Simulated scan of single mutants.
Amino acid sequence: MEFYLVLGMSLVTFGIRYTVLGASDRIKLPPIVIEALRYIPPAILTAIVVPEVLIPDGNTIEFNYTNARLVGAIAAIAIAYWRKNLLLTIVVGMLTFFTWQWAIGN
Rank of each mutant, 00 (worst) to 15 (best):
N67H: 09
A43W: 06
P56E: 07
T60D: 01
R83K: 15
G15S: 04
V50P: 00
P56R: 07
I79T: 14
W100Q: 03
F63N: 09
V49D: 02
A103S: 05
M1R: 13
L95Y: 06
N59T: 13
G58M: 04
G15A: 04
I74S: 08
V33K: 06
G72D: 01
V92W: 00
P42I: 08
T19I: 10
I55F: 04
T99M: 11
Q101F: 07
K28E: 11
A75V: 14
L86N: 07
W82V: 12
A43D: 03
I55L: 04
P30M: 01
F63L: 14
A43V: 03
T99C: 12
T19Y: 13
A47M: 12
I61T: 12
G105H: 08
A43R: 00
R38A: 15
Y65I: 14
T60Y: 05
T89D: 06
L86H: 05
I104P: 01
N67P: 06
Y39C: 01
W82I: 14
Y65K: 08
E52Y: 11
V12Y: 03
V50T: 05
I77V: 15
G22N: 13
E62L: 10
V91C: 11
I61H: 02
R26S: 07
Y39L: 15
S10F: 07
N67C: 10
T13V: 10
D57Y: 01
P31Y: 01
Y65S: 11
E2Y: 15
A76Y: 10
E62T: 05
A47W: 05
E52M: 14
E2K: 15
I44V: 14
I90E: 02
R69F: 13
A47I: 09
P31L: 03
A78G: 00
D25M: 03
L11K: 05
L5H: 12
K28Q: 12
D25T: 12
T89M: 06
V91Q: 06
T99P: 02
T66K: 10
W102C: 07
L86W: 12
V6N: 11
M9D: 07
E62R: 10
R69S: 09
I27T: 11
L7F: 15
V71W: 01
A78H: 04
F14K: 00
N106Q: 09
Y18F: 12
A76D: 08
L54H: 06
I27P: 03
I74A: 12
E62M: 10
L45T: 14
Y65F: 13
T60Q: 06
K84D: 13
W82Y: 15
Y18K: 09
R83S: 11
G72R: 02
A75F: 08
P41W: 05
E52I: 13
N64E: 10
A47V: 05
G8Y: 01
I90W: 04
I90L: 15
N64R: 08
I74Y: 06
P30W: 05
N59Q: 11
G8A: 15
Q101M: 06
G8C: 08
N85W: 11
V33M: 09
F14Y: 13
L54Y: 14
V50H: 03
A76Q: 08
R17A: 13
